[in-house]
Computed example of a mutant assay.
Amino acid sequence: MNTNETIIIEKLNKLETLLVSSIKQILTVEDLINYTGFSRSYIYKLVHKNVIPYSKPNGKTLFFQKNEIDSFLLQNKSASISQIEQKAINYTAATK
């Protein structure tokens, strides 16, 4: 197998992993790494500090609920300039 074939196979494997992770509702640490792009050590750090929601049903293996992870990833959202401008327009219109 030549280098180009190897690269194509690696990319296909990565795509397959991403597709499987996106379909699953319960994620393992490996799934979470692929889903978020976070490193393994960062995930364990978040778990250790109870920053990220997780389950540990057997006392050993970590599981993450995808919708909770999505909420976690979208918290502390920053408004865009256009959203801030619209809020200002709405506020000034309401106070007149």
Rank of each mutant, 00 (worst) to 15 (best):
L15R: 06
L18F: 12
K11A: 09
Q25A: 08
G37E: 01
H48K: 15
F64A: 03
D70V: 15
N13Q: 13
L15A: 08
V47L: 02
R40I: 07
Y35H: 06
L62M: 05
F64T: 05
I23D: 11
N34R: 08
S22L: 12
N34L: 07
F64K: 02
K45R: 15
G37Y: 02
T36F: 03
I69R: 03
V47H: 01
L12G: 10
L32E: 01
N34C: 11
K11N: 06
K45F: 14
H48D: 10
S39V: 04
F63W: 10
T28R: 11
L18N: 11
K11G: 00
I33Q: 13
F63D: 02
R40T: 06
Y42M: 12
E30D: 15
S39A: 10
I33H: 04
K14A: 00
Y42L: 13
T28N: 09
N58C: 04
T61I: 15
K45N: 15
S55E: 13
V20E: 06
N34A: 15
L62I: 03
N67E: 15
F64E: 04
V51E: 13
F38H: 09
L12W: 05
V51K: 13
Y35N: 04
S39L: 11
Q25C: 11
I69N: 05
K45V: 02
Q65S: 05
S55Q: 13
R40L: 14
Q25H: 15
F38T: 03
Y42I: 07
K56A: 00
I69C: 05
I43G: 09
F72M: 03
V29S: 10
I43V: 13
P57I: 06
N50G: 02
T36C: 07
F72K: 01
Y35M: 09
I52R: 00
N13F: 07
L19T: 12
N34K: 10
E68R: 06
D31V: 14
P53M: 06
V47A: 03
L62E: 00
K66D: 00
V29P: 04
K45G: 07
G37L: 01
T36E: 04
F72W: 12
L19M: 12
Y54L: 01
N13Y: 05
S71M: 08
S41E: 15
G59D: 02
Y54G: 00
K11D: 02
G37N: 03
T28Y: 12
E68M: 07
S41G: 10
Y44G: 06
K11C: 03
K66L: 10
K56F: 04
E16V: 08
R40G: 00
F63V: 08
F38V: 01
Y44A: 04
T61G: 01
S22R: 14
K60F: 15
D70H: 08
D70Y: 07
I23Q: 14
N67F: 14
V20H: 02
K49L: 14
I33S: 05
V51T: 13
V47P: 00
L19H: 12
L12I: 13
V51Q: 11
T28F: 15
Y44C: 07
S39T: 14
K24T: 09
Y42G: 04
F38D: 01
T28V: 14
I69E: 06
F72H: 02
V47I: 11
Y42D: 08
I69D: 06
N67G: 03
D31W: 07
